[in-house]
Write a protein that binds this DNA or RNA. Structure first.
Lengths: 190, 190
DNA sequence: ACCTGAACACCGTTCAAGT
DNA sequence: ACCTGAACACCGTTCAAGT
């Protein structure tokens, strides 16, 4: 991070990164809806229109933030999939919810439009989910069936957990949800 | 609905309802973020500041829309619970997703802030979910355990399905999800 | 009581001008 | 190339004034 660099350093070509950095901090503080280009400029030590040298407009800035977020997101999911051998689905779910919780500014921008983004990194991130389902099916851990539909179910669940935040401990709640989803909501002793 | 009434009728005390009606239409067309008080006024045939006679500000208008939405929402969930005897959980899930799909403007406003609303009607709506879980547990259909946590799982899932809309047929996808959730994601034949 | 129109402080965006 | 400051067309909100 470069928040303590002198203002002069922004004039050497890293203003773009500084603007994104500043934006993420402002989003964390007040939410995306309160984000203004003018305040970003002021906080970054440049004029209110300096951002237009690096982004065509505000939407373009947000798109850049979203793309960077999906890249990190995919890396986190990929790491979770490779590490967990016994229960990759639970590991993925936890990694998903943890990312949304710890990178709330990124996550907010990524799913701002309430429509699924179609960017390269977004597609990659969600392909990882589906691959995990197929992997589990091959290993005999997950029921057979349309892996895309099963991945959509999983994705909907972790997205709902992440945006609704009904439980104060997201990780613990996600582990609980993964267990119930795995074994089923039905009463097996009946 | 009163969309075809003469403009003069708005001056007889029903401007408040007309403003909410107009807002919902504008939200359906362009989304909440593009909603402006000025356009609401113009579309309703009054001045750009007429709304301030009925709402303290824009946030208050949105709060009124949200509250009315949660009231209708609760009615829909309650009706679904009372009708379905054999699988109340699936009926609730379908009713939830169908409401979000058919009342997208209302739903968008209701969950705009990405934080759970605490209003009277919102609490009522989600108590119905939990009651359904307890009901299913008493009937021996649903596994025992903390009904609040199980309701939170269900709620997260249907909210995720509603906001992400990964499947073109929300109702059909919800029935699929309810079946998987009921019987479990694990491979039972292994 | 209810509505209007001008006014104020914001915002995104453009553009001529500076280095 | 990169940044600035004035300017324009929008917003939400306030308020004195009209009926």
């Amino acid at each position: 991070m470069c928040e303590n660099f002198p203002v002069a350093s922004y004039h050497h070509g890293n203003l773009r990164a500084a603007l994104i950095d500043t934006s993420l901090k402002l989003i964390e503080e007040k939410g995306v809806r309160a984000l203004t280009l003018r305040e970003i400029g002021t906080r970054a030590g440049v004029s209110r229109t300096a951002a237009y040298r690096h982004f065509t407009n505000k939407a373009d800035l947000l798109a850049a933030i979203s793309e960077a977020g999906f890249k990190e997101f995919g890396d986190a999911l990929e790491a979770a999939r490779q590490q967990a051998i016994d229960s990759p689905l639970e590991a993925m779910a936890v990694a998903y919810v943890r990312f949304a919780s710890q990178h709330s500014a990124h996550y907010e921008v990524m799913f701002e439009d309430s429509s699924v983004p179609g960017g390269e990194y977004a597609v990659r991130a969600f392909n990882i989910l589906e691959e995990t389902v197929r992997q589990g099916q091959k290993a005999g851990q997950i029921r057979p069936g349309d892996s895309i539909q099963l991945a959509r179910l999983l994705w909907s669940l972790v997205h709902g957990i992440s945006t609704l935040r009904l439980d104060p401990d997201p990780t613990n709640f996600t582990i609980f949800c993964a267990e119930v989803l795995r074994t089923g909501l039905a009463n097996h002793s009946a």
